[in-house]
Amino acid sequence: MTTPSPADDDRGCLRLVLAVPLTLLTLIAAYFCWTALTITPSGPWDDDAYAGIVLACVLTIAAGGTAAALWLSPSARRALPWWWLLPALLLSTVAGARWVVGG
């Protein structure tokens, strides 16, 4: 019977430690993306609604970018598979499209 290497033993704990902020950043991005998608301006004169859309999109992209920066660290890439980053990037893409189309 072989024993796992020390690197494999710490990987589960490291995955949990890195998964918490990555999940929180993804939830923050989801909230602001939802906000950007649900704001509807009353008309072309509604500058406050357009500013709210832009702000929500910027915050979504910032949270997604922070999640990507966290995942790009060598320890996170070793512990978390690439698909952990996919929801944050998808939300950032949706927010970018909303910003261009409706913001």
Score class of each variant (00 low, 15 high):
residue 1 M to Q: 14
residue 88 A to Q: 08
residue 50 Y to C: 03
residue 85 L to A: 10
residue 72 L to R: 14
residue 56 A to T: 06
residue 65 G to L: 04
residue 13 C to L: 15
residue 23 T to W: 07
residue 51 A to I: 08
residue 40 T to C: 03
residue 11 R to T: 07
residue 98 R to Q: 14
residue 57 C to I: 05
residue 92 S to R: 02
residue 56 A to D: 03
residue 35 T to A: 05
residue 78 R to H: 09
residue 39 I to Y: 10
residue 21 P to S: 12
residue 33 C to Y: 01
residue 84 W to I: 13
residue 99 W to R: 04
residue 16 L to V: 14
residue 10 D to C: 09
residue 24 L to M: 08
residue 85 L to F: 07
residue 98 R to E: 08
residue 61 I to S: 03
residue 37 L to F: 00
residue 13 C to N: 13
residue 32 F to K: 07
residue 103 G to Y: 01
residue 6 P to G: 11
residue 25 L to I: 10
residue 77 R to T: 01
residue 39 I to V: 15
residue 47 D to W: 07
residue 61 I to K: 09
residue 2 T to N: 13
residue 4 P to I: 12
residue 103 G to N: 04
residue 82 W to M: 05
residue 43 G to R: 06
residue 30 A to G: 12
residue 9 D to N: 11
residue 96 G to M: 01
residue 49 A to M: 07
residue 73 S to N: 11
residue 96 G to C: 02
residue 63 A to K: 04
residue 1 M to I: 05
residue 82 W to E: 08
residue 38 T to Q: 09
residue 46 D to E: 06
residue 45 W to C: 11
residue 87 P to C: 03
residue 1 M to C: 12
residue 4 P to T: 13
residue 9 D to H: 13
residue 67 A to F: 03
residue 99 W to T: 02
residue 95 A to M: 00
residue 103 G to W: 00
residue 20 V to W: 08
residue 63 A to G: 07
residue 72 L to V: 03
residue 96 G to N: 00
residue 66 T to N: 10
residue 81 P to E: 04
residue 62 A to D: 13
residue 84 W to T: 15
residue 97 A to C: 08
residue 40 T to N: 04
residue 93 T to P: 00
residue 45 W to N: 15
residue 86 L to F: 10
residue 80 L to K: 09
residue 75 S to P: 10
residue 27 L to F: 05
residue 65 G to H: 06
residue 21 P to D: 08
residue 93 T to D: 00
residue 28 I to T: 14
residue 76 A to M: 02
residue 74 P to V: 04
residue 5 S to K: 14
residue 38 T to N: 08
residue 36 A to P: 09
residue 20 V to H: 12
residue 19 A to I: 02
residue 19 A to V: 04
residue 5 S to E: 15
residue 63 A to T: 07
residue 47 D to G: 15
residue 2 T to H: 14
residue 60 T to E: 00
